[in-house]
Protein backbone atom coordinates (compact mmCIF):
# COMPACT_ATOMS: atom_id res chain seq x y z
CA UNK A 1 0.00 0.00 0.00
CA UNK A 2 2.60 2.44 1.03
CA UNK A 3 4.91 3.13 -1.86
CA UNK A 4 8.67 3.31 -1.84
CA UNK A 5 8.87 7.07 -1.45
CA UNK A 6 6.77 7.05 1.70
CA UNK A 7 8.86 4.33 3.30
CA UNK A 8 12.16 5.92 2.29
CA UNK A 9 11.08 9.28 3.67
CA UNK A 10 9.93 7.71 6.92
CA UNK A 11 13.29 5.98 7.37
CA UNK A 12 15.20 9.11 6.52
CA UNK A 13 13.09 11.22 8.86
CA UNK A 14 13.61 8.75 11.66
CA UNK A 15 17.36 8.86 11.10
CA UNK A 16 17.48 12.65 11.03
CA UNK A 17 15.39 12.96 14.19
CA UNK A 18 17.67 10.47 15.98
CA UNK A 19 20.66 12.59 15.03
CA UNK A 20 18.89 15.75 16.17
CA UNK A 21 18.15 14.18 19.55
CA UNK A 22 21.88 14.50 20.22
CA UNK A 23 22.11 17.89 18.45
CA UNK A 24 23.77 16.50 15.33
CA UNK A 25 22.89 16.89 11.69
CA UNK A 26 23.64 15.13 8.43
CA UNK A 27 26.34 17.60 7.48
CA UNK A 28 27.86 17.98 10.92
CA UNK A 29 26.27 21.28 11.90
CA UNK A 30 24.47 21.89 15.16
CA UNK A 31 20.74 22.72 15.15
CA UNK A 32 21.19 26.47 15.07
CA UNK A 33 24.05 26.73 12.57
CA UNK A 34 23.67 28.24 9.13
CA UNK A 35 25.68 26.88 6.23
CA UNK A 36 28.58 28.88 4.89
CA UNK A 37 27.62 31.89 2.81
CA UNK A 38 29.60 33.01 -0.24
CA UNK A 39 28.75 36.03 -2.35
CA UNK A 40 29.93 36.85 -5.84
CA UNK A 41 28.82 40.13 -7.36
CA UNK A 42 28.91 41.74 -10.81
CA UNK A 43 28.61 38.44 -12.61
CA UNK A 44 26.54 39.52 -15.59
CA UNK A 45 27.53 42.44 -17.79
CA UNK A 46 24.15 43.02 -19.40
CA UNK A 47 22.36 43.38 -16.05
CA UNK A 48 22.58 46.57 -14.01
CA UNK A 49 23.30 44.57 -10.90
CA UNK A 50 23.90 40.87 -10.38
CA UNK A 51 25.04 38.38 -7.77
CA UNK A 52 25.47 34.69 -7.15
CA UNK A 53 24.95 33.56 -3.59
CA UNK A 54 26.09 30.21 -2.23
CA UNK A 55 24.39 28.94 0.90
CA UNK A 56 26.31 25.74 1.43
CA UNK A 57 25.68 23.86 -1.80
CA UNK A 58 22.55 25.90 -2.58
CA UNK A 59 23.21 28.41 -5.31
CA UNK A 60 21.03 31.24 -6.61
CA UNK A 61 21.71 33.89 -9.24
CA UNK A 62 20.03 37.27 -9.24
CA UNK A 63 19.99 39.93 -11.92
CA UNK A 64 18.61 43.45 -11.59
CA UNK A 65 17.50 45.24 -14.71
CA UNK A 66 16.20 48.80 -14.65
CA UNK A 67 13.64 49.83 -17.27
CA UNK A 68 11.71 53.05 -17.86
CA UNK A 69 7.99 52.96 -17.27
CA UNK A 70 4.99 55.01 -16.21
CA UNK A 71 4.39 55.16 -12.45
CA UNK A 72 1.35 53.66 -10.72
CA UNK A 73 -1.48 56.20 -10.73
CA UNK A 74 -1.75 56.15 -6.90
CA UNK A 75 2.02 56.73 -6.43
CA UNK A 76 2.99 59.23 -9.15
CA UNK A 77 6.35 60.09 -7.55
CA UNK A 78 7.57 56.57 -6.82
CA UNK A 79 9.43 54.07 -8.91
CA UNK A 80 8.52 50.43 -8.63
CA UNK A 81 10.17 47.10 -8.01
CA UNK A 82 9.17 43.65 -9.14
CA UNK A 83 10.63 40.38 -7.90
CA UNK A 84 10.43 37.24 -10.00
CA UNK A 85 11.73 33.78 -9.28
CA UNK A 86 12.17 30.89 -11.64
CA UNK A 87 12.73 27.41 -10.26
CA UNK A 88 15.05 26.63 -13.10
CA UNK A 89 14.81 22.98 -14.23
CA UNK A 90 18.60 22.84 -14.34
CA UNK A 91 18.75 23.19 -10.56
CA UNK A 92 16.83 20.14 -9.37
CA UNK A 93 15.48 16.89 -10.84
CA UNK A 94 12.06 17.74 -9.40
CA UNK A 95 11.60 21.00 -11.33
CA UNK A 96 10.00 20.96 -14.74
CA UNK A 97 10.12 23.50 -17.52
CA UNK A 98 6.89 25.43 -17.95
CA UNK A 99 4.79 28.05 -16.22
CA UNK A 100 5.78 28.83 -12.60
CA UNK A 101 4.53 26.35 -10.03
CA UNK A 102 2.97 27.37 -6.74
CA UNK A 103 6.17 27.04 -4.75
CA UNK A 104 8.04 29.30 -7.17
CA UNK A 105 5.29 31.92 -6.90
CA UNK A 106 5.41 31.70 -3.11
CA UNK A 107 9.19 32.10 -3.11
CA UNK A 108 9.03 35.12 -5.40
CA UNK A 109 6.39 36.79 -3.28
CA UNK A 110 8.24 36.07 -0.04
CA UNK A 111 11.38 37.68 -1.48
CA UNK A 112 9.30 40.55 -2.84
CA UNK A 113 7.83 41.21 0.59
CA UNK A 114 11.21 41.19 2.31
CA UNK A 115 12.61 43.71 -0.20
CA UNK A 116 9.51 45.88 -0.52
CA UNK A 117 8.38 46.08 3.10
CA UNK A 118 11.87 46.76 4.45
CA UNK A 119 11.82 49.91 2.28
CA UNK A 120 15.47 49.18 1.61
CA UNK A 121 15.21 50.97 -1.71
CA UNK A 122 14.06 54.55 -1.64
CA UNK A 123 11.37 54.43 -4.32
CA UNK A 124 11.16 58.21 -4.61
CA UNK A 125 14.80 58.10 -5.63
CA UNK A 126 13.68 56.12 -8.69
CA UNK A 127 11.33 58.85 -9.94
CA UNK A 128 12.41 60.71 -13.08
CA UNK A 129 9.43 62.88 -14.04
CA UNK A 130 6.59 62.87 -11.54
CA UNK A 131 3.51 61.18 -12.93
CA UNK A 132 5.22 60.33 -16.22
CA UNK A 133 8.48 58.41 -16.04
CA UNK A 134 10.06 56.32 -13.31
CA UNK A 135 12.56 53.52 -13.07
CA UNK A 136 11.17 50.02 -12.58
CA UNK A 137 13.65 47.59 -11.08
CA UNK A 138 13.09 44.03 -12.24
CA UNK A 139 14.78 41.77 -9.74
CA UNK A 140 14.83 38.28 -11.23
CA UNK A 141 16.11 35.21 -9.46
CA UNK A 142 17.00 31.80 -10.88
CA UNK A 143 17.90 28.80 -8.79
CA UNK A 144 21.11 27.14 -9.95
CA UNK A 145 21.42 24.38 -7.39
CA UNK A 146 18.59 23.52 -5.04
CA UNK A 147 20.16 21.97 -1.96
CA UNK A 148 17.48 23.27 0.37
CA UNK A 149 16.43 26.61 1.82
CA UNK A 150 16.12 28.67 -1.33
CA UNK A 151 14.09 31.12 0.78
CA UNK A 152 17.06 32.63 2.56
CA UNK A 153 19.38 32.30 -0.44
CA UNK A 154 16.95 34.28 -2.62
CA UNK A 155 16.73 37.22 -0.22
CA UNK A 156 20.51 37.23 0.16
CA UNK A 157 21.01 37.17 -3.60
CA UNK A 158 18.47 39.92 -4.20
CA UNK A 159 19.98 42.20 -1.56
CA UNK A 160 23.53 41.50 -2.78
CA UNK A 161 22.53 42.31 -6.34
CA UNK A 162 20.69 45.49 -5.30
CA UNK A 163 23.60 46.65 -3.16
CA UNK A 164 25.84 46.55 -6.21
CA UNK A 165 23.29 47.78 -8.75
CA UNK A 166 24.22 50.80 -10.81
CA UNK A 167 21.33 52.23 -12.78
CA UNK A 168 21.94 54.31 -15.93
CA UNK A 169 21.45 58.04 -15.72
CA UNK A 170 18.84 59.51 -18.06
CA UNK A 171 18.78 62.43 -20.46
CA UNK A 172 15.60 64.24 -21.39
CA UNK A 173 15.39 65.57 -24.93
CA UNK A 174 12.11 67.25 -25.93
CA UNK A 175 10.31 65.33 -23.23
CA UNK A 176 11.73 61.99 -24.42
CA UNK A 177 13.53 60.14 -21.70
CA UNK A 178 16.39 57.82 -22.58
CA UNK A 179 19.31 56.07 -20.85
CA UNK A 180 22.83 57.41 -21.12
CA UNK A 181 26.14 55.62 -20.56
CA UNK A 182 26.61 57.23 -17.16
CA UNK A 183 25.60 55.08 -14.18
CA UNK A 184 24.85 55.74 -10.54
CA UNK A 185 24.37 53.42 -7.56
CA UNK A 186 20.94 53.18 -5.93
CA UNK A 187 20.49 54.20 -2.33
CA UNK A 188 19.96 51.35 0.10
CA UNK A 189 18.42 52.36 3.44
CA UNK A 190 18.23 48.92 5.03
CA UNK A 191 19.46 45.39 4.51
CA UNK A 192 16.74 42.77 4.96
CA UNK A 193 17.98 39.28 5.78
CA UNK A 194 15.78 36.21 5.90
CA UNK A 195 16.39 33.28 8.25
CA UNK A 196 14.24 30.17 7.98
CA UNK A 197 13.64 27.69 10.79
CA UNK A 198 12.36 24.19 10.07
CA UNK A 199 10.34 21.96 12.34
CA UNK A 200 11.39 18.31 12.24
CA UNK A 201 9.58 16.21 14.82
CA UNK A 202 9.94 18.23 18.03
CA UNK A 203 13.14 19.90 16.88
CA UNK A 204 13.56 23.32 15.37
CA UNK A 205 16.56 23.56 13.05
CA UNK A 206 17.93 26.51 11.13
CA UNK A 207 18.69 26.49 7.42
CA UNK A 208 17.79 22.92 6.46
CA UNK A 209 19.68 21.26 3.66
CA UNK A 210 17.59 19.47 1.07
CA UNK A 211 17.24 16.09 2.76
CA UNK A 212 16.08 17.79 5.93
CA UNK A 213 13.83 20.14 3.98
CA UNK A 214 12.20 17.22 2.19
CA UNK A 215 11.10 15.55 5.42
CA UNK A 216 10.49 18.71 7.49
CA UNK A 217 6.98 19.13 8.91
CA UNK A 218 6.86 22.89 8.56
CA UNK A 219 9.04 25.92 8.15
CA UNK A 220 8.84 29.54 9.19
CA UNK A 221 10.84 32.37 7.65
CA UNK A 222 11.40 35.81 9.12
CA UNK A 223 12.84 38.73 7.19
CA UNK A 224 14.41 41.28 9.48
CA UNK A 225 16.26 44.53 9.04
CA UNK A 226 18.46 46.27 11.60
CA UNK A 227 15.40 47.55 13.48
CA UNK A 228 12.27 45.84 12.22
CA UNK A 229 10.63 42.53 11.44
CA UNK A 230 9.53 43.09 7.87
CA UNK A 231 8.33 39.79 6.47
CA UNK A 232 7.25 36.39 7.66
CA UNK A 233 5.86 33.25 6.16
CA UNK A 234 4.96 29.86 7.51
CA UNK A 235 4.93 26.96 5.07
CA UNK A 236 4.66 23.20 5.08
CA UNK A 237 1.90 20.87 6.14
CA UNK A 238 2.65 20.89 9.86
CA UNK A 239 2.11 23.62 12.43
CA UNK A 240 4.07 25.54 15.03
CA UNK A 241 3.17 25.98 18.68
CA UNK A 242 2.84 29.66 19.56
CA UNK A 243 5.97 29.55 21.74
CA UNK A 244 7.93 27.97 18.89
CA UNK A 245 7.02 30.91 16.67
CA UNK A 246 8.41 33.34 19.23
CA UNK A 247 11.58 31.27 19.67
CA UNK A 248 12.12 31.03 15.92
CA UNK A 249 11.71 34.79 15.63
CA UNK A 250 14.25 35.56 18.36
CA UNK A 251 16.68 33.14 16.78
CA UNK A 252 16.11 34.62 13.31
CA UNK A 253 16.86 38.12 14.57
CA UNK A 254 20.12 36.99 16.17
CA UNK A 255 21.27 35.03 13.13
CA UNK A 256 20.28 37.81 10.74
CA UNK A 257 22.37 40.41 12.51
CA UNK A 258 25.46 38.17 12.23
CA UNK A 259 24.80 37.53 8.54
CA UNK A 260 24.31 41.26 7.98
CA UNK A 261 27.68 42.04 9.49
CA UNK A 262 29.35 39.44 7.32
CA UNK A 263 27.48 40.82 4.34
CA UNK A 264 28.55 44.39 4.99
CA UNK A 265 32.14 43.28 5.32
CA UNK A 266 32.05 41.35 2.04
CA UNK A 267 30.44 44.12 0.04
CA UNK A 268 31.97 47.06 1.86
CA UNK A 269 28.63 48.45 3.03
CA UNK A 270 27.93 50.95 5.75
CA UNK A 271 25.28 49.59 8.11
CA UNK A 272 24.79 52.83 10.07
Amino acid sequence: MADFKVVANAIEKNHIIKLLDSDRRLDGRSKSDMREIKIETNIVGTAHGSAIVHLGKTKVICGVKAVLSAPWSDYPNKGSIFVGFEASPLSSPSYRAGPPQDHAIELARMTDRAIRESECINLEDLCIIEGEKVYTLNIDLYSLDDFGNLYDACVLAAVAALATTKIPEVEIVDGNVSFTDEVRPIKMDAYPISVTSYKIGDHIVTDAEFKEERIADARISFGTTQHYIVSGQKGGKGAFKSQEVMDALTHSIQKASKIREFFAEELGLDLK
Partner: peptide, 17 residues
Protein backbone atom coordinates in the same frame (compact mmCIF):
# COMPACT_ATOMS: atom_id res chain seq x y z
CA UNK B 1 -2.09 25.75 20.44
CA UNK B 2 -0.83 25.47 16.88
CA UNK B 3 -0.13 28.21 14.38
CA UNK B 4 -0.95 26.75 10.99
CA UNK B 5 -0.57 29.85 8.84
CA UNK B 6 1.64 32.78 9.49
CA UNK B 7 2.43 35.65 7.18
CA UNK B 8 3.84 39.04 7.89
CA UNK B 9 4.64 42.14 5.94
CA UNK B 10 5.38 45.62 7.13
CA UNK B 11 7.61 47.08 9.78
CA UNK B 12 7.12 45.56 13.20
CA UNK B 13 9.38 46.13 16.15
CA UNK B 14 9.81 43.13 18.41
CA UNK B 15 7.35 44.47 20.99
CA UNK B 16 4.75 45.32 18.36
CA UNK B 17 5.17 41.84 16.94
Amino acid sequence: DEVSLFQLDGKFTFDQF
